[in-house]
Nucleic acid binder design. Sequence first.
DNA 1: GTTGAGCGTT
Length: 246
Amino acid sequence: MSRFGRSGPPPPIRDTYSLLVLNITFRTTADDLFPLFDKYGEIVDIYIPRDRRTGDSRGFAFVRYKYEDEAQKAVERLDGRLVDGREIMVQFAKYGPNAERINKGRIVEPVPRPGGRSRSHSPRRRYRDDYRDDHDRDYRRRSRSRSRDRYTRDRYRDRDYRHRSPSRSYSPDDYKKRGRDSLSPERRSPRRSRSPDDYKRRGRDSASPASKSPSRSPPRKMSPSPERSPVRRNNDRSPRSRSPST
DNA sequence: GTTGAGCGTT
């Protein structure tokens, strides 16, 4: 009864107040918060969302209280408390686990139906069902930590940029300048070399200028490892050695 | 191994 982070079906939340605990360390576990929150009221359950890939906590936890007054007290008492060397932020949860309507942390009723269609078979799936389909996108969207993502991306981006070409900035100005200085007008646009009249006629007759060429690059298949050809699998460098010479 | 401004599960 002490371990809240244990697996298992969540308890009924018909009369529970969810508190959102933010700013907690990534190492803080439900057991660490339990004694803290339990001191201020009766805790129904504590849940800390963790990353499914790594299993690490995302940096926030949900504490469900039985009474609102206790929850409120905990919010005021634990909000800003130093936990594991970090100041945690406690506040009432705004969203419910199942899209329930929450009023001041308390789940009032399930998702209300907008409009009044009592029998509307909305194809919209539930939260969990959606996970299966777009769990990838969803995860990326609200990754565990923005900075973490950005940080990693930045690092990669920086290195990538450096690898690319620091002087190869593709700017409209640069392009213009370069094109005029380096490339000839003909090379720049062979179609442009034609008379405007021709261009107009052609454009109308042939195709619209707006039509972009999706097949700008030939569908050439990239050979990831041409050396991996099965032909070269043999380590034999002398094909003749196997040739029977008489 | 890291990080940080956010809302949840068997």
